[in-house]
Design a binder for these strands. Structure first.
Lengths: 233, 233
DNA sequence: GTCTATATTATGATAGAC
DNA sequence: GTCTATCATAATATAGAC
């Protein structure tokens, strides 16, 4: 994250104008990272731009200078978070080119769970955004959620034809999946009290992945429709 | 809700002191109902006591008079919401005395889903409370969550012995169940955009109940351990 | 781009009349 | 118990020097 010695120093094209730009980009990123944390922990209303600035180690007017307003900061955080998820999703998909759909779906769903565990902010932010209608929600849905859902729905349909996935409307099933997989992370404090263990521990996470995938993937009842009902294990 | 003509008028024991008490209780309830809505929609920090008072149709100092502080109001809302759920749960359980455990579990879980649909505030509040450690969370867990989880866990274990329920740790499975069943309600705005249909419509709700129960209940693979592997259908 | 200083508003909470 | 009036604080946002 810290890039204090940029290569521009060698180039010698007016470091007086070049270096500050890098510094500015850096403070923008520091603010964004701090905002991600603050928004996820305290919600949009509960987070103050002053607290964000303090956490980022900068003066508070800088957040409005870089992001126009608190709302602008919120939008930037949402875009960055959703974008980060979509980036890893797309590159993962690209890497799985040629793999059969059932396996692809299984791996992508597992990635989703592990991403959720590593980025607990992710679903807290998405939850806040998805509760009530808003302009930002429309943008978020059109830019990220709908493309993601479309891709996964196609995979689910393929897996259903192969008899390897629970029956039902794919989009509906995705909400069941998302809910089932993320609840222990968004209720982390309660989970800790009830079960005594952190939902983020490695052991718990492996069990969680197995349990979630086990709920939705069925070991091929070999439906009469599909041609290749390949089964794992 | 509106009880403007109480029977005390006949009794004639100083209506000057009796009637005001009823009115006070009524405003307390109006404030509580408004607070439930405001807290669920905007979160603890996002809801203002002034907005609560305005929604309740009373002056703002009255909320602090009746609930001591904003925190006190929050606690009262949590207690009322969790208490309402537990009341219907306990009375339902009492009504099912003598019914076999698998059926009992199935009915109680269905009730949970329908309660969640009818009280969308419920999980939004619980989500907020369960995110971070706090004194209120401890109280909530000890008073409501733990008793509920203990009862359900026992039923799940019985259903598992009968081969009618997915394998796994009962408490862990409950979080999967809660997440799977409630996500479409807490993400109502996003669901509406993605699927085009409200998750609260009667048709959607019935499909949802069937899908959720179908995920967790298995049609008795007749495990060798248990004695009576009774199967439904 | 970054700082100090400040305008403006909203909020939680209370005092005091009725 | 309910109202009006007000205090104290914290927050968003901006102006202006450097």
């Amino acid at each position: 994250m810290i890039k204090s010695e940029p290569a521009e120093a060698l180039e010698y094209t007016s470091p007086a104008t070049r270096r500050p730009q890098a510094r500015a980009r850096e403070t923008g990123e520091k603010i964004l990272a701090a905002a991600l944390k603050e928004f996820a922990e305290h919600g949009f209303a509960g987070a103050s731009t002053r607290a964000v600035a303090a956490a980022a180690g900068v003066q508070h007017p800088l957040v409005n200078y870089h992001f126009k307003s608190k709302e602008g900061l919120w939008r930037a955080v949402l875009e960055a978070t959703a974008g980060q998820f979509m980036d890893q999703f797309q590159s993962r998909l690209a890497g799985l080119r040629g793999v059969d759909d059932v396996t692809k779906l299984r791996l992508v769903q597992e990635d989703f769970i592990r991403f959720s565990a590593e980025n607990p902010h992710f679903h807290l932010l998405m939850s806040q955004a998805g509760q009530h209608p808003s302009k930002q929600l429309n943008a978020l849905v059109n830019e990220f959620v709908r493309p993601y859902f479309t891709t996964i729905s196609a995979l689910i349909r393929a897996a259903q034809r192969a008899g390897s996935y629970v029956e039902g409307d794919p989009e509906h099933l995705q909400y069941l999946f998302i809910g089932a997989t993320t609840r222990i992370f968004t209720l982390a404090a309660e989970v800790k009290l009830i079960t005594g263990a952190s939902p983020f521990s490695a052991a718990m996470l492996d069990r969680h992945v197995a349990a979630c995938l086990g709920l939705f993937f069925r070991t091929s009842t070999a439906k009469p429709t599909g041609a290749n009902s390949r089964r794992k294990t």
